[in-house]
Computed example of a mutant assay.
Amino acid sequence: MSFKPNRVNAPCPALPGVGLLAVEGRDAAAFLQSQSMNDVAALDDGRWHWNGLLTPKGRVIFLFALLRTGPESFLLVSPDADAAEVKAHLQRFLFRSKLVLRDDAGLAAAAGPFAQTDDVSRIIRADDGALALDVSGEGGQRTLWLLPAGHPSLAAADPATTAAWRLADLAHGLPRLSPGQREAWTPQMLSLERLGAFSLKKGCYPGQEIVARTHYLGQAKRTLQRLAGTGTLAESTPVLGDGGRELGRLVCVADAGDGRVEALAVLPAELPAEETLVASTPLSRLPLLGGLAR
């Protein structure tokens, strides 16, 4: 059973850019199992996990939270992709599957008050039809609310709230993938094992062979690392080391306030601690915060 708090009655600023795609029907579970990189068959009704879609070459296209809202119903919550984009991608593989893809789920993503639950992978259902996900981690408590259209607590997007949400995502190692970063990185390069976002035990799915080979042959030579600097940083900017040699690139950036900026970059896993890092500005290293795995 999903946990049920009282109806949410505090202002919840909308989080722009979050795509919500409903997948419903007799074949919904089997279809998602065959297309996504995590084990949908192991996802019980009323629970959620991190998941994503890969190219046949094992590169991440979309990263999302997958909610199992019923025996034959799912909801994809993508922080960086419009639901219509994800729908168009999945429609190419439907063939004769008995299911419906709906990008008009009737819900809006928002940042709201913390809703306590004894299991962070459980979907929280409020009495007023709202859903919520506990996305807390070592950096503090957070709840992502999915509010019905017209909900009285749904407020206009607030730039400060949106920026703080993105900063928390990056601090916990949840990469935010703009269109320019899609199909650029494998799950291991993005350290998605930290989030429990892909499975090595389930059956075939696009990119599965590359993911498994990288894992079992120990070939993940680059990983996700958290960096900080001042001034302006942009995704795809090369990260240079000693002697000006290119070590990797920035994946995503976030404004940390007061002229500071944080970023996630894909860099060599065995990067020496004393290596100087620069990407248009000197960079320092920060630890990735834990606790966001689901």
Results as ranks from 00 to 15, higher is better:
P5F: 14
N6G: 10
P11V: 12
V18H: 02
G19K: 02
L20Y: 02
E24D: 11
E24K: 12
R26Q: 15
A28K: 00
F31K: 01
Q35D: 10
A41H: 13
A42R: 03
D45V: 10
W50K: 01
N51Q: 13
R59V: 12
R59H: 14
F62W: 07
F62T: 00
F64Q: 00
S73N: 11
F74V: 02
L76D: 00
L76K: 00
V77N: 01
P79D: 04
D80C: 03
A81T: 04
D82G: 15
A83G: 11
V86E: 01
K87I: 15
L94D: 03
F95G: 04
F95S: 04
R96P: 09
S97F: 06
L101D: 00
A105M: 13
G106T: 12
L107G: 00
A109T: 03
A115T: 02
D119G: 06
R122I: 14
D127W: 13
G129Q: 06
A132Y: 03
G137E: 01
G137M: 06
G137A: 13
G140P: 06
W145S: 01
L146W: 03
P148I: 15
A160P: 09
T162Y: 05
R166M: 15
A171F: 13
P175F: 06
R176A: 07
P179C: 14
P187F: 08
L190V: 11
F198L: 15
G203M: 08
C204Q: 09
C204G: 11
E209T: 03
I210P: 02
I210A: 05
A212T: 13
L217C: 12
L217N: 09
Q219H: 12
R226G: 13
R226P: 10
L227Q: 00
G229V: 05
L233K: 01
T237K: 12
G244D: 06
L250A: 11
A254M: 10
D258E: 07
A263K: 02
P268K: 03
A269F: 11
L277S: 02
S280I: 11
